[in-house]
Design a protein around this nucleic acid. Structure first.
Lengths: 131, 131
DNA sequence: ATTCTAGTTTACGTTAACGTTAATGTCAAT
DNA sequence: ATTGACATTAACGTTAACGTAAACTAGAAT
C-alpha cells in the first residue's frame, strides 16, 4: 500500500547520481529506512524531500541552508512556543524568497531592454539594406 | 570627468574582498585599466559589470555562465548575423530566467501553505488554552 | 545454487570559488 | 625622503558538493 522506492529509482527520476542521494543523507537532508539486508528504502516523503532539495539548489541555496529549512518544517512542533518560532522563521525565509524573485524580475527586465536595443539595431540594418 | 575607482573602493561598495575582484578578472569577467605603476583602475562600466556578476551569482549562475552572458552582450555586434545570434542567445537566457522565476514562485507557495498549516495549529492550541 | 544486477561502505580525487600568506611595489601625505 | 596605507603577483590552502574506484553484500532471476 505504502509506495516505496529504491535509490536508483529516485536517481533516474530526478536525473542525479546515487552518490548524490547518499550524500544528501550524509548531510542530514533525508532519512530513508532500511531493509533487513541493509539497503535503503525511500518513502513518498523522502521523495518529496528530494524534490525540495533540488528546487532549493536551483535557486542557489546551499545544502546547509536547505537542511535548516527542511528540519525546521519537518520536526514535530507540538508546543506553542515551538510553533511560534517556526512561523517566525518561515516568514523570514519567505521574505528572502520574495526578495530573490524581485531581484530576478529586475534582471529579466535588464536583459529584455538589452534585447530591445539589439532588435532595433537589427531593424535599422534591415532598413538600410533595402534602400 | 570620467569617474574611476580603486579596487578597494569597489570591494567596500559591494562588500566583497579584493581577492574576489581580482579573481573575476582572472576569469575574464572584467577588464580594468592600469596606472603607470601597474595598479588597477576601474571605470563605471567595470562597476556595472561587477554588479551584474553579483546579481547573477545570487541566482545560482556559475562564473562561467555569467562570463558567457557578459561577453555575449558586451562585444561589438555590428554585423547582421552577429546581431541575430546574440538575440537568439538572449531570448534563450531570458527564458531560463523566466523558468527560474516560475519555479521560485512555486516554492514560495509551498512555503506559504506550510505556514498556513502551522498558523492554524497555533490557533487551535490557543483555542484549547482558553477553554 | 549460481549468476547478474544493483546496493553498501570506505576512502581518495576533483572542481569552483575564493581565503591566506609572503614578499615586494606604489602613491599620497607629511 | 620617509612613512603608512593600499596595491601587486605567486603560490599554497580550504570548503562544498559531489565523482570515482575498490572490495564486498543483497536480492531477483534463471
Amino acid at each position: 500500500m505504502e509506495q516505496t522506492y529504491t535509490i536508483s529509482d529516485l536517481a533516474h527520476e530526478f536525473d542525479i547520481s546515487t552518490r548524490t542521494i547518499r550524500y544528501y543523507e550524509e548531510r542530514g537532508l533525508i532519512h530513508p529506512g532500511r531493509t533487513e539486508g541493509g539497503q535503503r528504502i525511500y518513502s513518498r516523503k523522502d521523495r518529496t524531500h528530494l524534490r525540495l532539495i533540488l528546487r532549493g539548489k536551483r535557486f542557489g541555496f546551499s545544502l546547509e541552508e536547505i537542511a535548516e529549512m527542511i528540519n525546521m518544517f519537518d520536526q514535530d512542533r507540538s508546543g506553542k512556543k515551538q510553533l511560534e518560532v517556526t512561523i517566525q522563521y518561515g516568514r523570514k525565509k519567505i521574505k528572502e524568497v520574495d526578495e530573490k524573485i524581485q531581484d530576478m524580475v529586475a534582471l529579466r527586465e535588464e536583459m529584455e531592454s538589452l534585447l530591445q536595443d539589439f532588435q532595433s539595431r537589427l531593424q535599422q540594418l534591415k532598413g538600410e539594406e533595402s534602400r
